[in-house]
């Protein structure tokens, strides 16, 4: 059983409360929780777009494979040159091979984490097949985070059927884990015939009501759900609130742009946002990218 501290860190990580996770003070280095929490913290840095802090956070001479993996991921996300990216990916591949070997020094938790981190990097690199293989998609592992990533990969390639299968498999052993609920709700964001998004809607409503953490990410999530449900004014208020908590968050801003272009908004409002968004930070606005690709 994990300590409440670790549990809390995990919950924050799952629900995207990265900023509060980053502000978290690490426990004593000798505590068994030190490394796991450090890992969450490092990954929160990466996820919130500041991978450079990871190198300062994680000791360079660590023997822990999962810490090595997270450093590699940070390097990958930070790299601008292809060569650097490739070397980071290679390191992750090596780590994956290493954990396959029957070496007593790494426990299951670390192995699972290495797979998750490597899988994440492969997804970013567009190596979906490799990611799925690394995450053990379709095999009977009990690595819930891997399942979550697998599911999102399947969703990204429109395979809700496989995603649902993977989720059902996990449901057998993962009981009612928070992450499992998240997986379920994310499948319903994509699936056709999802009972009007009732699952994600209630999940994010519930999590927003959780007193122990606040995260603009959750607000954005609920906003997106509301947007999908066609509740545009409600969605916009969520986005605006999220932006007030975390100004300039690209994901939220993009969603707000979409919401503002739909009927029920002021004329030209969407265009205005779009003009603000489009020239900027293309890499963080995937929809700018796809729109660009579609130019007639």
């Amino acid at each position: 059983m994990e300590s409440s501290e670790l549990y809390h860190a995990k919950q924050q990580f799952i629900l995207g409360a990265y900023s509060s996770l980053i502000d978290l003070t690490l426990p004593d280095p000798n505590s068994p929780d030190h490394n796991p929490i450090l890992l969450y913290k490092a990954r929160a840095h990466i996820a919130s777009g500041s991978p450079k802090w990871v190198t300062e956070l994680v000791p360079a001479d660590t023997e822990d494979v999962s810490l090595k993996a997270v450093t590699a991921l940070a390097r990958y996300r930070q790299a601008t040159e292809d060569a650097d990216k490739d070397s980071a990916l290679e390191e992750l591949r090596d780590l994956c091979v290493e954990i396959e070997g029957e070496d007593g020094s790494t426990d299951e938790r670390q192995k699972a984490l290495v797979r998750v981190i490597a899988g994440t990097a492969f997804v970013w690199a567009g190596e979906i097949e490799e990611a799925l293989e690394t995450l053990g998609a379709g095999t009977s592992h009990e690595n819930l985070e891997a399942v979550a990533i697998t599911v999102q990969i399947y969703l990204s390639i429109n395979r809700t059927d496989l995603a649902t299968k993977e989720f059902n498999r996990a449901k057998r052993w993962a009981e009612d884990d928070l992450l499992l609920q998240l997986i379920e709700s994310s499948i319903d964001l994509v699936k056709i015939g999802n009972d009007a998004y009732s699952n994600p809607n209630s999940f994010y409503n519930e999590q927003l009501g959780n007193p122990s953490l606040t995260s603009p990410h959750l607000l954005t999530a609920r906003g997106v759900t509301r947007l999908l449900r066609g509740e545009i004014p409600a969605a916009k208020s969520d986005f605006e609130e999220a932006l007030s908590q975390k100004p300039g968050d690209p994901e939220t801003f993009a969603a707000l742009t979409v919401a503002s272009s739909l009927p029920g908004s002021k004329r030209g409002e969407g265009e205005q946002f779009w003009k603000y968004v489009s020239p900027r930070r293309i890499e963080v606005f995937p929809f700018v990218l796809t729109c660009g690709r579609l130019v007639i």
Binding site: S186, V224, G230, F287
Partner: peptide, 16 residues
């Protein structure tokens, strides 16, 4: 809409 349920991954394209 674009949204990533898992913040660590690139976002999904959601269809309104």
């Amino acid at each position: 809409a674009y949204f990533s349920p898992l913040g660590t991954l690139p976002p999904l394209q959601l269809h309104i």
